[in-house]
Computed example of a mutant assay.
Amino acid sequence: MNLKFIKLDSMNTRIVAVSAAMLLTLGSFNILSAQNKPLVIDEVVAVVGGKPVLASDIETQYLQFRMQGNIKGSATETRCTILEGILYNKLLLNQAEVDSITVSDKQVESELDRRIRYFISQIGSKEKLEEYYKKSLFEIKEEFRSIIRDQMRVEMTQNSITKSVKITPSEVRKFFKEMPQDSIPMVNSEFTIGQIVKKPKVGLTEEIAVKEKLRTLRKRIMEGENFSTLAVLYSEDPGSAAKGGEVGLFGRGEL
């Protein structure tokens, strides 16, 4: 009985050992297969006028939408909307090539700086912007420069196409009357709300009190108190109060 028990245990040991060896072999095979599987860095999702639309183009705009709070619906729906817009812009960009529509470097840099300032004002600081994109400000500008150039050319092309188009209200009504009922898109209900606002006149007493308060705050700042702290505590501007009075950067003539 003891011999049989020992023999059976020995067989179990061999079976376990073989099973373990098979698992290790399969595991190694899976690891090697995963290592040999190609890593997709980017891919072409469409081609317009001989120029590709990359998956990274969609993701770049998706990140912009997220930062600006323009995400509506699911991520898939948003990406589809972005792709549709890119295809439309590519068509106009192709027409810009045909019509030799160009934009100067100065115009591009001016618009690029304006957008970067806007992004920084929205996200809080240059450092936060770099952290969000995981790139330096220089790299962000390099990435957006060609995008902005194309967008400006698209806008100029669109304007050149539509500048001579004139449509009267009667033509619009006729167009919709002739459309099949099942082809008319559904439009969400909209409401127009009006309000009557009457601003009270500021009296001399209130004006003096406000000026005195401002003088007091200025004196505290000049004596060494932190400007940002006082801005958070006393500023009535909803946009800059939480940022310590920081309103961002503005170019000449923008204010």
Score class of each variant (00 low, 15 high):
Phe144Ile: 04
Ser146Phe: 14
Ser146His: 13
Ile147Ser: 08
Ile147Arg: 12
Arg149Asn: 14
Asp150Tyr: 07
Asp150Asn: 15
Met152Tyr: 05
Met152Arg: 04
Val154Cys: 05
Met156Glu: 08
Thr157Gly: 06
Gln158Lys: 13
Ser160Tyr: 11
Ser160Pro: 08
Thr162Pro: 05
Lys163Cys: 06
Ser164Ile: 09
Ser164Asn: 15
Ser164Thr: 15
Val165His: 03
Val165Pro: 01
Val165Ser: 02
Val165Leu: 08
Lys166Ala: 09
Ile167Trp: 04
Ile167Gln: 03
Thr168Cys: 00
Thr168Leu: 00
Pro169Trp: 11
Glu171Ala: 04
Val172Gln: 08
Arg173Cys: 00
Arg173Pro: 00
Phe175Val: 05
Lys177Gln: 03
Lys177Asp: 04
Lys177Gly: 00
Pro180Phe: 07
Pro180Val: 08
Gln181Asn: 07
Asp182Phe: 06
Ser183Ile: 07
Ser183Met: 12
Ile184Ser: 01
Ile184Val: 08
Asn188Gln: 04
Ser189Phe: 15
Glu190His: 09
Glu190Ile: 10
Phe191Met: 01
Ile193Asp: 06
Gln195Val: 12
Val197His: 10
Val197Phe: 11
Lys198Gln: 07
Lys199Ile: 12
Pro200Asp: 15
Lys201Gly: 02
Val202Asn: 00
Gly203Arg: 03
Leu204His: 09
Thr205Lys: 14
Glu206Gly: 05
Glu206Asn: 10
Glu207Gln: 12
Ala209Asn: 11
Ala209Glu: 15
Val210Tyr: 12
Glu212Thr: 09
Lys213Leu: 06
Lys213Met: 06
Leu214Lys: 09
Arg215Ile: 14
Thr216Ser: 04
Leu217Arg: 07
Arg218His: 13
Lys219Leu: 10
Ile221Asp: 07
Glu223Gln: 12
Gly224Gln: 04
Gly224Glu: 05
Glu225Val: 02
Asn226Trp: 02
Ser228Met: 11
Ser228Arg: 13
Thr229Val: 15
Leu230Gln: 13
Leu230Thr: 11
Leu230Phe: 14
Ala231Lys: 10
Val232Arg: 15
Leu233Asp: 15
Tyr234Asp: 14
Tyr234Asn: 14
Ser235Ile: 01
Glu236Val: 14
Asp237Thr: 12
Pro238Tyr: 00
Pro238Thr: 00
Pro238Trp: 00
Pro238Ala: 00
Ser240Val: 09
Ser240Glu: 09
Ser240Asn: 08
Ala242His: 13
Lys243Met: 04
Lys243Cys: 01
Gly244Cys: 03
Gly244His: 02
